[in-house]
Design a protein around this nucleic acid. Structure first.
Length: 298
DNA sequence: GCCCAGGTGTCTG
DNA sequence: CAGACACATGGG
């Protein structure tokens, strides 16, 4: 009998697991975790090998249980940090709610989805990959492409006869050729961008640590958009989902535009200019506002 | 068949 | 610096 690791994750007051699970469950094609009976199950790559972890509510804290594999102290710290980042637990979102209370568009959303946190993608390589996959295609197809990438080039662990996938490492993707991805129905450009970014991560030219060491958001954006395949939208997407920039604002996002259109009950999508005008009230919280607006679409 | 999709790079005026 | 356009492929 091996001892099972159990991690306790403390929670802020403005947190509702049901709301966050509802967001996580938005696609039935998600390939990187599963949701069962109020528990989130996900595989993690650790130095000691892959581990499947369940995350669920236990009283007023989250409890993470290691189901297979074993975590040393370093692994436990890494998984705890990942979960805190994933659910954005170390951020005081009261100022966001305060701002939203005075905003026609956001007020009903913060009421309806109270306790929803900006669900992140802690791994920057995964965040940028997902941005590239999602460019200019519908979300359903994007999930299909991600699933094929993950299943073909990522590791997986079995638990209870089910496979739990881990997003492919930069090294694994860096070794691919576009012709490896074309049969999975990646366009030539997506394949080229994805492999190029993987190579930059594998070589150390790009890293989350380095991006985070840059204090100026403008400089972060500039560095990100200097990479082939990362435009303004993808840079802001990664900044809000991975770099904890709550003011990141992917204005060109068609989902965001549609959400505003629906909520305002108007015939056409707002222009970028109109969105920027609207977002003047959101200063510092554009990323959170965007996230709640996306949530309104499901 | 047609329009749209969680865009980007490149070219042109 | 703004605007037009090619790219690429599935979903509805």
């Amino acid at each position: 009998m091996s001892k099972t690791n159990k991690l306790i994750i403390t929670l802020p007051a403005e947190f509702d697991l049901g709301q966050n699970i509802a967001f996580l469950g938005r696609s039935d094609r998600e390939s990187l975790f599963t949701i069962e009976n109020g528990l989130v199950l996900k595989a993690f790559a650790t130095d000691g090998g892959p581990a499947v972890v369940s995350i669920g509510l236990q009283g007023d804290v989250l409890e993470a249980n290691v189901l297979t594999g074993k975590l040393d102290a370093k692994g436990e710290a890494a998984v705890s940090t990942y979960i805190r980042d994933w659910f954005d637990l170390d951020n005081d979102i009261r100022p966001f709610y305060k701002m939203a209370a005075g905003d026609k568009l956001l007020k009903p959303l913060t009421k309806k989805f109270f306790g929803l946190r900006l669900i992140g993608i802690p791994d920057l390589f995964e965040a940028l990959s997902w941005a590239i996959i999602g460019q200019q295609i519908n979300l359903a197809f994007a999930y299909t492409l991600k699933q094929r990438l993950v299943e073909n080039f990522g590791e997986s662990v079995k638990y209870n006869d089910k496979l739990y996938n881990i997003f492919p490492s930069p090294k694994a993707v860096a070794a691919l050729r576009p012709d490896d991805l074309r049969p999975l129905q990646f366009s030539g450009k997506k394949a080229e961008y994805l492999i190029g970014i993987a190579q930059k991560f594998a070589s150390g030219e790009l890293s989350k640590e380095h991006l985070l060491s840059i204090e100026s958001r403008e400089q972060q954006e500039k560095l990100l958009t200097s990479v082939h395949g990362i435009g303004k939208w993808s840079a802001h997407y990664a900044m809000m989902k991975s770099l904890k920039d709550y003011s990141a604002f992917p204005v060109a996002d068609v989902g965001l535009q549609n959400a505003v259109k629906v909520l305002m009950k108007v015939e056409r999508k707002p222009t970028e200019k109109e969105l920027l005008q609207m977002a003047k009230n959101w200063k510092g919280w554009e990323g959170y506002a965007t996230f709640y607006l996306w949530r309104s679409l499901y």
